[in-house]
Design a protein around this nucleic acid. Sequence first.
DNA 1: TTGTAGGCGTTATCAA
DNA 2: TTGATAACGCCTACAA
Lengths: 354, 354
Amino acid sequence: MHNKIVRIKDIAEKAQVSKGTVDRVLHNRGRVAEDVRQKILRIIEEMNYEPNLIARTLKSNRNFYLAALIPDPLIDPYWEAPKSGIEKAEKELKQYGIAVKPFIFNPYNIDSFLKKAAEATQSAPDGIILAPVFYREVLPFFEQWTQKEIPYVLFNTQIQDSTPLSYIGQDSYQSGFLAAKMLHYGLPDPCTVLVAHINEDIPNSAHLITKEKGFTDYFLQENLKNRYTVARQELSNPNSLAFTEQLAQLRKEHPNLKGIYVTNSKAYEIAFYLEKHRLTNIKLIGYDLLPKNIQYLEDGVINFIINQNPKGQGYWSIYQLSDFLVFKKDINPIKYLPLDIITKENLSYYIDAE
Amino acid sequence: MHNKIVRIKDIAEKAQVSKGTVDRVLHNRGRVAEDVRQKILRIIEEMNYEPNLIARTLKSNRNFYLAALIPDPLIDPYWEAPKSGIEKAEKELKQYGIAVKPFIFNPYNIDSFLKKAAEATQSAPDGIILAPVFYREVLPFFEQWTQKEIPYVLFNTQIQDSTPLSYIGQDSYQSGFLAAKMLHYGLPDPCTVLVAHINEDIPNSAHLITKEKGFTDYFLQENLKNRYTVARQELSNPNSLAFTEQLAQLRKEHPNLKGIYVTNSKAYEIAFYLEKHRLTNIKLIGYDLLPKNIQYLEDGVINFIINQNPKGQGYWSIYQLSDFLVFKKDINPIKYLPLDIITKENLSYYIDAE
DNA sequence: TTGTAGGCGTTATCAA
DNA sequence: TTGATAACGCCTACAA
């Protein structure tokens, strides 16, 4: 079982030239006689040479500084997971000279985003990762970065009119479709299901609309469309009185309501309501393993959580950028993460995973 | 954002000694004056030194040869995935001097296993990974390997009476429990569910018994035990006539049979039967994304597949061993992989994942 | 007990 | 147009 690794030196010997010449061929630095070049290329091919990344990175111990533009986890706890994924990746990649600086903005405040995005740009990073939650506002920054040739990676929210190095995240349409399937699987035959958007600026949130589309399309399938009614509702701030009233109103309008789909990570708000009113026969499905969601999942109030692997999103974003900058690998422009279905019974595998 | 990496040289300078001395302290090779040792240790602590793994691996360009003892994918297609995971890991780790040689045995033939295991041992590998499907027969090999100080990693099947470097795989009990939950979620209230073992030597397959236990325990929960009946059946070779007869017999005995749980990757055999007899009201759940299972999942005959990430099992097994041998990391003795729930709707994310 | 010199594979510089 | 050489950080053999 020899694992004879081919080195530049081996190629040089075989071609009867020096390492330097081979190197120049490998990196297209010119200044090599054409016939020699051809010969070397052939030998490289023949011996099936692959550069030793270890040695390469050891040599080029450049430092890279990345900016991470993310919403404040203290304001919306969902963002804790991406942040910790970013930190995990940073730790692993510190060896390779990667350093990440977070720029944290308020996800409910456009000015805060503009300010932090400007700061991040100002700091002249070698790369940027961000969750572009404000569609309109982020576009001009994309232009700036493209101009300055700063590669950027998007996660969480996909934006069509842009050319990021890569997008990491979910397939929103399929996500809604899957949610519908999971609800449907446990539902009695004719009944009403609800798509609930909680406290979101829907027109500026393309991904939530896409989720809703996936969900409703599921119930529009030929064999289902006459048996299920899909209602929709944009619910206001859960702390307001209006929230409870809207729900009460909905139940009046749809007495046969048997399933609720919450399009963001706030299913716990509905769970709280269901538990309070002892509505045990309404199935509930939502997103993301926040502590409050986990609690309700364990108590059986939330039936399923779809996990978008938010930690992985942060983690892989940093990795994509590093693979590009440090290792010069080819980067896949889209990396969809699996849509994990989580119940009380397989929960632990998703929480413990470091 | 300086990423000032502390090197041995830095420490040596600060301590006014040479790099060699610092190195001896770092590796506890003794032969260092005690006061100097203390001083250096303090400085290491202070400067918060961490060795550069890149440089370390570049230096120690030892080659490691691993033996992979796995069942023949041509005989049971389940094993294709672990094999490809192993190959993927080997490819990535080739850089680090890892080479893997497969020893492939017939999973239905004990002699074949004994022969290949002996061969693998004979080849004096630096490490072994294996799927120990024959409980009794593998134990003596564990002893040999321990004696020879060859580290070994188990995957797929956990074996209590052994001290592998690590076990990679599923939590069988929880897996059965989850399967029960998924079936139950879509079932009408009083009915019968079946645990089906297909073509397995049950007494010698501890993990299948554990799965069954998890499954039955779910339906023994306080609020369920009077409403559901759990039947069990060991089915013979699906190609035999007996197989069909056994199923017909079962349906006679349990007219209210509404759900079937197949404990291994052969759900497609039941699916074939269900489709043939147009038994669309029986839910079916099984394991593993084999092409035939995928087909029936897409057709809606199989409702859910639980994925044990077999590719990941092979992949991580090699990685655990390499982390131990090459990088000298601490190895976690158990790595449970997530129990992924797969439906038609999220299938693609699990197939495409390279 | 301590220091020095060389090498792992790649790359950049400089001299030929 | 080429070849030789040094450096990245760590490790080891050998010399002092």
